[in-house]
Design a protein around this nucleic acid. Structure first.
Lengths: 123, 123
DNA sequence: CTGATTCATAACCGAATGGTTATATAACTG
DNA sequence: CAGTTATATAACCATTCGGTTATGAATCAG
């Protein structure tokens, strides 16, 4: 399908191994072997995970002799964070609004609990 | 593989159709048919996308007659937002620190070059 | 009851995913 | 030079994914 950047980033982040690699890279750039050490998988499997992260633009690599130094490129993460953050904020706000509404209604009900009979809800 | 919650959420978000559905749901809860209208795909395909969102905990459904009312559950998105937000903030901070360092070094180099020029004058 | 509407499920298909082993390439080491 | 090390690539495999068509089940309308 039409794989845009956001698709690739979220897809790359959907694997715990790859998220772990990114977190490991937060401690500083390393080579491929070191990145793969924590995981019980073959070297080609590690190589594939890195290729996925690279295709998503989440890492960059530079050759230093026979080693590949891997470092994070924070820009695509920033993009994804923006999307998801905007969305999360919207729902937090919705939740807070409903919360405030319910609280207000509870207060109101308390103050005129004897005068009011029954409220009809809309929708 | 060992599919934890974060895996499922990011995986669900990695498809533009599903992200679109979530955005559509921000306008309020709807039924399955309405959710699928914007997309050029069969009804079972829509149903499958909803199942993916549901497995990830991103939506909830309630039956009303023959219709299914779909609404967002914002909690898993909040979780994902937390992970990615923390990560994005870390890298922004790193970037800012490097930026500040480079700027400081540039300033220092500027003053040093003036000093060096003076010393050469002395010679 | 009959027929239409809303949705899910089953069965299938091709492509992508995540893993493997085996092999290739390039750089370092003695 | 030969041997070791770091990494990628190829070929393969099972599973998942995103789509399809066909069918089923429940509810609504006349």
């Amino acid at each position: 399908m039409n794989q845009n950047r956001l698709d690739l980033v979220f897809s790359a982040l959907s694997d715990a191994t790859r998220r772990g690699m990114l977190e490991q890279l937060a401690a500083g750039e390393t080579n491929v072997g070191t990145l793969g050490e924590p995981y019980d998988m073959s070297q080609p499997a590690v190589s594939k995970h890195l290729r996925v992260l690279e295709r998503a633009g989440l890492i960059r690599r530079t050759r230093q002799g026979r080693e590949h130094r891997i470092r994070v490129d924070p820009r695509p993460i920033e993009e994804a964070s923006t999307w998801i953050g905007r969305y999360a904020r919207f729902w937090k706000q919705q939740f807070d609004a409903v919360d405030a509404y319910l609280k207000a209604r509870a207060d109101e009900a308390r103050t005129r609990s004897r005068t009011k009979a029954k409220e009809q809800d809309k929708r």
